[in-house]
Amino acid sequence: MIISVIRTIILYVLILFAVRMMGKRQISEMQTSELVITLLMSNIATIPMQDTEQSMLSGIVPIMILLVCEILISYLMLKRSGIRKLVCGKPVIVINNGIIEQKAMKELRLSTEDLFSQLRQKDIFDIAEVAYAVIETNGTLSVLKKSQDDNIKAKDLKIKTQPSELKVVVISDGEFADSSMRFCGLEKDKIKRILKKENTSLDEVFIMTADSSGAYQIIKKEGK
């Protein structure tokens, strides 16, 4: 049993490494081939975990080979659009200028229920609102609404707005987040001065967010 425990830990680290190497995409954003390879890797990893008679390398080698193939293919897909088309396919327009492309839907084996379900998930309940809808290579639906049904933006009304600033967490549960501090150009001393001005201490802070313009927000810990 102890062998299984050690092997599981080793394979866990290996799978973490492999997933980290494959990139940061979430399951819903994965291409079909990426999803299949991820499932395949986890399946292969279970064999030497459970069967201690099996050599562990016989599990590690296929996992590593799949990882290498995945990275090489994704690199080639970046460089050659032909390979990308071959591996991922291409996006398909299913609603073209408000008209459903029935032939494309048949080719995709996409039912009207599926199409309407995906539209509803995008808060579109009337197909008349849609100008274009495209099934992306990972199976998700992208929609462009007709201009008269689209949300009004500030620029449509010619309203001047403040530039957007990204707020990041600089203190989390009483601890400094160094990389976020660097991102918004803050130093520990400066934050300590802000905390002093706000009559609080580092230990009392649950979350402090800040942006590069100098704006900040402090949320204290409960009961402090």
Binding site: M21, G23, L57, V61, M64, V68, I71, L72, Y75
Partner: peptide, 21 residues
């Protein structure tokens, strides 16, 4: 760096396999 990492992993795996063989 991912590509180089992948190529290093490939090299290591091939070496292990050849040694085993």
């Amino acid at each position: 760096y991912r590509l180089y990492g992948a190529l290093s992993v490939l090299g290591a795996v091939l070496l292990i396999s050849l040694f085993g063989f």
